[in-house]
């Protein structure tokens, strides 16, 4: 019990004193996670739309593959990207490994399936008559798509929130591709893993509490946003 109280008080101290090391770690986490969520959304949401509204052979198979990729382990993505961007890999000359860019590449690959499948299920749920009505009243394709986005906004926002949650909480890719370099690629999760390795459990739990706090703040923001759009 003492252990938990200690950790909680330490977390308060860390956050309350705006510890520069902690802020730096939170900064790296947010920067990387937000960037990868943004990129994955820009690719995944339209991608989901196209898959949901077009008919092509193997459509079911593609959706099944996307669903399977939801279970993609972070270490597999990490290894895969590592093989490409390592000094001995084909993109080795760009010196990408162990940089925030490398983490973003891995995280984008990890969450595109999440954004895409959530989007597919969100827009598939909309009654097809909406689309047909829109087209018959003379809306062009873009206007029709925009109307569907408005209709499915809640599901799409959920897709983005889930994707963000996945990347801010993951440790495998950040560790393998970011390398946990202090002041450069150290994120909240890799910092926690490290403090645990060092036997500094109190600091580790304190970071965990800080992480939940940050996620809560981000979700409050999303919640506010979802509410806004709805009106």
């Amino acid at each position: 019990m003492d252990f938990l109280i200690d950790s909680f008080l330490s977390a308060m101290l860390l956050i309350g004193s705006l510890d520069p090391g902690l802020l730096e770690i939170i900064g790296v986490s947010l920067k990387v996670s937000c960037t990868s969520t943004l990129i994955a959304s820009v690719i995944g949401v339209p991608g989901g739309f196209i898959i949901a509204f077009s008919e092509f052979p193997m459509k079911r198979l593609l959706i099944t593959i996307l669903n399977t990729l939801l279970a993609l382990p972070t270490v597999v993505v990490g290894l895969f990207v590592y093989a490409f961007i390592s000094r001995r890999g084909i993109f080795g000359v760009f010196d990408l490994l162990y940089t925030p860019k490398a983490m973003i590449i891995g995280q984008v690959i990890l969450i595109i399936p999440i954004v895409a499948t959530f989007t597919i299920s969100a827009v598939s749920r909309i009654d097809d008559r909406y689309r047909k009505t829109a087209l018959t009243v003379g809306a062009n394709l873009f206007q029709t798509a925009w109307m569907l986005v408005r209709e499915a906004r809640f599901g799409i926002a959920a897709a983005i929130i889930a994707a963000f949650g996945r990347v801010i909480a993951e440790v495998g890719i950040s560790m393998m591709l970011g390398g946990n370099v202090r002041g450069f690629t150290r994120t909240m999760t890799t910092a926690m893993a490290l403090e645990y390795d060092k036997g500094q459990f109190v600091l580790s739990v304190a970071l965990g509490i800080a992480l939940l706090g940050v996620s809560f703040a981000v979700n409050l923001f999303f919640n506010y946003f979802q509410g806004k759009v709805r009106v």
Partner: peptide, 23 residues
Amino acid sequence: ETTEIVKQGKRQQVFSQHPEGLG
């Protein structure tokens, strides 16, 4: 760099030292 943590109800400081140029 010092980080303050609480251990058994008491404030403690954890130190870490490194050369300039971190990161």
